Computed example of a mutant assay.
Amino acid sequence: MIALVDWVFGRVDATRVWRELADAQVNYSFDEVRRPQWNIDHYRIELPPERPGQPEPRGSWEHACRLVHDYEFSPPEIVRALYDPSAPLLGRDMLLEARFHGIHFYCGVRVTEVVNELRDGTDRVWGWAYETLEGHLERGKVTYEVVKRQHTGEVLFVVSCYSQGAPTLGPVTSLGWRLFGRRTQLRFYRRCAERMRQFVPALLRDEHPLDGPACTAGRLVCAPSDARMHRADTLAVHRVGPG
């Protein structure tokens, strides 16, 4: 196993910062969410279909759910996450490393909703949502869902999000967010879709595109599991709780 201290979080004591998330609160109220001050996004991509009916064992829907559960869809060049895989999904605290042009920001989110339902009588839906905690660059909520339309067999990966830059950002960070934040956010969604389109068909072929040594720090793991450290990471500027 690769020790996380030798890996990507560099000079940051990631385990300590992750522990401190337990005392943090969600940094916004839903009553504040409205256009045009907030970005409201909805993305949907098609994955390999199944036969109509309930999700198939080891089929497209099950593989996609597993990727979503473990945060494997996240593009490691943009966002990486540290969390405790033994803890229940609902209430899971995650320390995110957001990577912006040589600056790595460390921010907390918490899983506040798990979706497991039959929607509209036909759509089998599983997923979860996290919300931003105090100190995050942003304020808002992201929901990741895998949907099987059982009457047609279609399988979808759906991302829904509302967000805005945190008003407590300092002037330098705020300028950087205005210049790169929204652009990077949209690129994150596109790359999530690309990874799901790549990984689900590979898993259906019984290939294992994410196999490899897991990065750990005690009981914590870092996701996605194909993230690797590069020499340039040691030169990055590290900021904890910039918001």
Rank of each mutant, 00 (worst) to 15 (best):
V159E: 10
W7M: 08
R231T: 07
P224G: 03
E117L: 05
A3P: 10
V142G: 02
F157K: 03
V147W: 06
W177K: 00
L220H: 09
C222D: 04
P209H: 10
S174Q: 11
V33Q: 13
R110M: 07
D84E: 10
A202E: 15
I103Y: 02
R92P: 05
Q164S: 10
I78C: 00
F9L: 00
L169R: 07
E194V: 06
L220R: 10
F199Q: 06
W177M: 15
G108I: 01
R16S: 11
G127I: 09
I40N: 02
E46G: 15
C65Q: 11
Q37F: 14
G121Y: 09
R34K: 07
D226S: 09
T122I: 13
L179K: 04
E154Q: 14
L156D: 11
H230R: 13
R228K: 13
I45L: 11
A24N: 06
A3H: 13
R239M: 13
G181A: 01
R35G: 04
L90I: 11
C192R: 01
P48G: 12
F188A: 11
L118R: 12
V155A: 12
A64G: 02
E113D: 13
V146C: 01
R195H: 09
R187C: 05
A14K: 03
P201W: 14
L210V: 11
H69Y: 15
V158K: 03
Y106S: 02
E134Y: 04
G243C: 00
V146Y: 01
A3I: 14
A202R: 15
D70M: 04
Q25C: 00
A24F: 00
M196I: 03
F100D: 14
S86V: 04
K141F: 01
G181K: 03
C161I: 10
W61C: 02
L133S: 10
P48K: 12
V146W: 05
L118M: 08
T132D: 08
Y162P: 06
C107Q: 13
R58C: 09
F105N: 09
A14E: 03
L156V: 05
R16A: 14
I45C: 10
K141E: 09
D233K: 01
H238W: 06
V111S: 03
P209T: 08
S160G: 12
L169Q: 08
Y106R: 00
F9Y: 15
R195N: 13
A223Y: 04
V146P: 08
L118D: 13
R197N: 01
W177V: 12
H136G: 03
A129D: 09
P242R: 00
I2A: 13
A217V: 03
Q185M: 13
M94S: 13
D120I: 05
V147E: 14
S60C: 04
A223N: 05
S163Q: 07
D31Q: 15
L133C: 12
L220V: 12
P36G: 14
E46R: 15
E207A: 05
R239Y: 12
V79C: 14
V26H: 00
E134I: 02
V237S: 07
E46M: 12
L90C: 06
C107H: 03
T173G: 04
G91L: 05
D120E: 11
L4I: 11
L89C: 01
G241K: 13
